[in-house]
Design a protein around this nucleic acid. Structure first.
Lengths: 204, 204
DNA sequence: CGGGGCATGTTGACCTCGTCAACATACAGC
DNA sequence: GCTGTATGTTGACGAGGTCAACATGCCCCG
C-alpha cells in the first residue's frame, strides 16, 4: 500500500500479494487466505495473482520465505546491544525465536508446514530456512572456540538447539502446553537446559 | 476390513473410516483424504461418513486421537524389557518418539496440526495428548526421586524434553535437516543433551 | 510521434470438494 | 410380520483453485 506506480497497472502487485496474504494469515489463519479474497482485498480480480504466481502454493511459499527472512532479521538484531559475553547471546536467540513464533503463530505454522506448501522442493524456501541454520551454526562455533560450550560438530549442536526452540514454539502455538504454565519461565528453562547440556558433555 | 456384521449395513463403518483415513494419510498425505475418496475406498457413498462424524474435521480428530494412543502405546512398550536403570529409559522413550514420527510422518503431522483439526477445543484430542505428557511426567518424577536428574517441577522438565523430541521429529519430517546427517546420531545427541542439561542444573 | 507487442488484469467456465436435505433401506424389537 | 430408527444414497448448492479467451495499458522501436 505504500509504494505505487512502479510497474504497470496496479503497481507491484506481486509484493502486495505477499504482504496481504501474510496479513490475512495473521488475521484469520491460513484457511482464510483465498485467491479470491486476497484479490478482492487488493482491488483486483481473482485471476490477477496468477500473473505473478503459478498457483496458490507458490504465493504461500513466498509468504513463508518472507517469514523466515523476518525471523532471521529478528534473531540477528537481538545481537546488537546484547552482551555477547558468555552464552547469553545464544539464550537470547532462543528466546527471540520462540517469541517470534508466539507473535505470529499462523505465519510460523506456515513456514514449517511443508505439506501445505509444496510437494516438490522449493529451493527458495530451503535457502531461507538454511540461512537460519547457518547463523545458528556460526554463533555456536564462536562459543565453542571460546570454550563456553563443548566441542563437536557445531552443526549437530545447532540442530539440537533448533529442535528445542522449534519444538517449544510449536507446542505453545498448538496449545499443547498448559496455559497456566509461565511461558517466560518455560522458555528460559528450555534454553538453559540445552545450554547446560551442551556445556559439559563428552561424546559417548 | 477384519471384522464385520457388528452393527447394521456396513458393519462398524465408523472404525473403518478412521482406519482407512489413517491409511490414506500415510499413502498420499492429508490432502488426499477426501470424504468422497474415503467413502469410495470403503464401498460406501460420500454421504455415509456423515452418519458417524458431523464433519471432516471430526473424522480427522478421531484419526489424530488414534495416533496419539498408538504413540503412547509404543512409548510404554519400550519400557518392558528395557533396563529401567538410570536414565536409559528416558533416552529410549525419546528415541521411540522420534522414530514413531519418522515412520508415520503424515499421521504425526496431523496429530499436531491443530489448524487443520479444530477451531474449537477438542477434548478427546486434548486428553490423548495429555496422556502422553502425563506418562512423561511420571517417568521424570521417578528419576528425580532416584536423584538421577535434577529436582524441580517435573512438569516443566517434561515440557522441555517433549519440546526437544517433538522439535526434532518435526524438523526431520519437514526435511529441514540435511539428509546427510546421521539421523540416529542426531536423535541420540538430542536426547543426551537434554538429559545432561537436566542432570546438573540448578534453578537460577 | 504512432503502432505493435508484451505484461498485466478480467471474466466465464469447469472441476473438485464439503455439506445439507430429501429419500431409500435394513435391522431391531414388539 | 410391522414399525421406527439407524444407516446409507443421491441431488443440489456454494466455495474455491485454476485455465483459457479476451481486454487493456504501457514500453519501445522505428
Amino acid at each position: 500500500m505504500a509504494e505505487r506506480a512502479r510497474t504497470y497497472h496496479h503497481g507491484d502487485l506481486r509484493a502486495s500479494l505477499v504482504e496481504e496474504a501474510a496479513a490475512m494469515i495473521s488475521e484469520g489463519g491460513a484457511a482464510s487466505v483465498t485467491m479470491r479474497a486476497i484479490g478482492s482485498r487488493l482491488g483486483v480480480s481473482r485471476g490477477a495473482p496468477y500473473r505473478h504466481f503459478p498457483d496458490k502454493t507458490a504465493l504461500l511459499v513466498a509468504v513463508a520465505v518472507a517469514g523466515f527472512k523476518r525471523l532471521n532479521r529478528r534473531l540477528g538484531s537481538g545481537d546488537a546491544g546484547a552482551p555477547s559475553s558468555s552464552v547469553e547471546r545464544l539464550r537470547r536467540m532462543g528466546e527471540q525465536y520462540v517469541r517470534f513464533a508466539l507473535k505470529h503463530p499462523a505465519h510460523y505454522r506456515l513456514m514449517y508446514g511443508k505439506e501445505a506448501l509444496a510437494r516438490q522442493d522449493q529451493p527458495e524456501l530451503r535457502n531461507a530456512a538454511g540461512a537460519l541454520l547457518e547463523n545458528l551454526v556460526d554463533v555456536i562455533r564462536v562459543h565453542q572456540q571460546r570454550g563456553e560450550i563443548e566441542g563437536g560438530d557445531p552443526r549437530a549442536q545447532a540442530y539440537v538447539a533448533w529442535s528445542a526452540v522449534h519444538g517449544l514454539a510449536s507446542l505453545l502455538i498448538e496449545q499443547q502446553i498448559d496455559p497456566n504454565v509461565d511461558v517466560d519461565d518455560l522458555i528460559r528453562q528450555t534454553t538453559q537446559t540445552i545450554l547446560d547440556g551442551m556445556r559439559d558433555r563428552s561424546q559417548d
